[in-house]
Amino acid sequence: MTYLGNGQAPLLPSELSAPDGSAPAEQRTAPVIALRQITKTYRLGEVEVQALRGVSLVIERGEFVAIMGASGSGKSTLMNIIGLLDIPSHGRYWLDDVDVRNLDELALSRVRNRKIGFVFQSFNLIPRTTALANVELPLIYAGVKSKERRQRSEAALEQVGMTDRMHHLPNEMSGGQQQRVAVARAIVTNPSLILADEPTGNLDSRSSEDVMAVFADLYAAGRTVVLITHEADIAQYAERVVRVRDGLILSDERMVDATLARPSLGSAP
């Protein structure tokens, strides 16, 4: 039995389209992310905190975007909204041309499963579960059969250079290795968007370089990557940097040197 019900077929590229049955995403020019006047207000006891005050942002397919900001700038809230973990107070959000406002809980979990690959600061691998099983997990929820699941997971692990650690448990791996497994888990469903929240925040500089090299590879392979960070040197890997402060976009610039730097990154060990 699959939890997606109704014998929903395993994930296929042609299915990476909007649930409303519109044409496959590959043939479209629509942006991956389109945010319009997003606001988010929290209530902390008596006080209302405005985390986002009206953010509009468009991210096209194949872009590598770094969202930068100090803590408290609202960048984490923005990331949660983009990742469908949180809902905006106002404003509209189209993910792959689908207005997520109209999705119910089950549809949201399905979109998270198929269109978004998360990479977290604290790796967030499932404990006591091997690297391979962790990578297989999103495919399990997508209803992929076990043989195909295994093949795709092994391929994803190979892509991040973790084939030799496939059967290791998270607590048997270094931080950098865990994060690379987490990246494999994020890409295994072939999502429209890879969303990384401070992926190098818990890593030493050497491991950070390894992990960022993986993201650079993904970008080079045509993936859409959105990276949240407060470190300028990490943001340099991106081709576009969006700076956030006090719940508003402060600047949005394309880094010319990022495209120049990419070949050297691509050849990095």
């Binding site: 939890y3 973990l85 399905r110 998270r112 198929r114 977290f120 967030n124 929820y141």
Partner: peptide
Amino acid sequence: TREIGIRKAIGAPRGAILG
């Protein structure tokens, strides 16, 4: 709880967690 959060983030529907 954290594990549940991870599972939900990577697309576990409500029914899967319940199950």
